[in-house]
């Protein structure tokens, strides 16, 4: 059963009382909020998320609207996990970003049985491409373009790898487009479903892409990685896809992981194995058609 199959009244009741339990990749998350605005956003954008009623939830998160006693202060939003708030307050309109970022943080801080790369990941023909990248390199935008052109979404944020066997876990979620990328995607992919625009967040204006239903239906199908590509969007550039030396790829990938050092020797061996079994590239692009056809050539 998916979120969209729950009647709205029951959905609201769950969120404000015992909690809405949803499957988020290999994890279950229990969400509580009494904010009706946020509930409306979640209802629309989480439509294809699977429910995890009566199952164990790893993470228990809450978004609370705080109404200050003195009138001169406007209400704000706080994110809590197990009664603890890791962030300063957010403006009231930013409930959805607070929720999504909070979930990112909790996963990154608490999960150590998997190796976590800060990376987008998509799959084609049974094999995964990793796009590890620094913030602002356009990995979410690239990822959005690819998943509307035949690639299966694993994640735009986390490469989740089982260090024992090298399997990657899909963790499809909303994908936050930032600033100009929002219009870029509206122009290039009119069919893409986007949430409302949230202005003035920490990262500028954000609008979330709702991933295609198929990525949720198949979210239990793991796959191994075959390509590691470090992307960079440069305005007006022509496409270049150049091999990256393994030693450099190792350092870039390891330092771009959330918990590489926490895993110790296991992390070292897992990254070594991953680099030895993958082809590593540096990608510079500006045009989506070019980059999609280059990725198709690579993965055919």
């Amino acid at each position: 059963m998916t979120v969209g199959q729950v009647p709205f009244g029951k959905f609201i009741a769950l969120l404000s009382d015992s909690g809405l339990r949803v499957r988020v990749g290999p994890f279950n998350i229990r969400i509580n909020t009494k904010s009706v605005t946020l509930a409306n956003h979640i209802y629309r954008l989480y439509e294809s998320y699977k429910l995890a009623e009566d199952e164990f939830a790893e993470f228990h998160v809450q978004v609370i609207v705080v109404h200050p006693k003195r009138k001169i202060f406007s209400p704000h939003i706080r994110f809590f996990v197990d009664g603890h708030s890791p962030f300063p307050p957010f403006p009231q309109e930013q409930g959805l970003t607070a929720l999504e970022w909070g979930i990112n943080l909790v996963i990154a801080a608490r999960v150590s049985h998997l190796l976590l790369f800060h990376s987008a990941a998509v799959e084609r023909n049974g094999q995964v491409i990793l796009f590890p990248a620094w913030p602002g390199s356009g990995k979410t935008t690239l990822c959005t373009a690819l998943i509307y052109r035949g690639y299966r979404l694993f994640s735009d944020e986390f490469g989740l790898m089982d260090p024992d066997n090298g399997d990657f876990f899909p963790i499809p979620r909303l994908m936050p487009l930032k600033n100009e990328s929002i219009q870029v995607i509206r122009d290039y992919l009119p069919e893409a479903i986007l949430g409302h625009e949230i202005p003035k967040t920490l990262k500028g204006t954000i609008a979330h892409v709702r991933p295609p239903k198929e990525s949720f239906m198949r979210s239990e199908e793991t796959a191994k990685a075959k390509w590691i590509i470090f992307p960079k969007w440069v305005a007006g550039s022509s496409l270049s896809l150049e091999p990256l030396p393994d030693s450099e790829a190792f350092l870039l990938l390891a330092s771009n992981s959330f918990n590489y050092e926490v895993l110790g020797e296991v992390g070292f061996q897992a990254v070594t194995h991953l680099i030895r079994t993958c082809s590593c590239y540096k990608l510079v692009y500006s045009d989506f058609d070019d980059v999609i056809s280059a990725m198709n050539d690579l993965t055919d």
Partner: peptide, 21 residues
């Protein structure tokens, strides 16, 4: 025990070992 609980415990043990190191 339930596999999700076991994964949380494994994660915590890995983190504890790391802090010990």
């Amino acid at each position: 025990i339930p596999v999700r609980a076991a994964n949380i415990l494994r994660s915590s043990l890995i983190q504890a070992k790391r802090m010990q190191q």
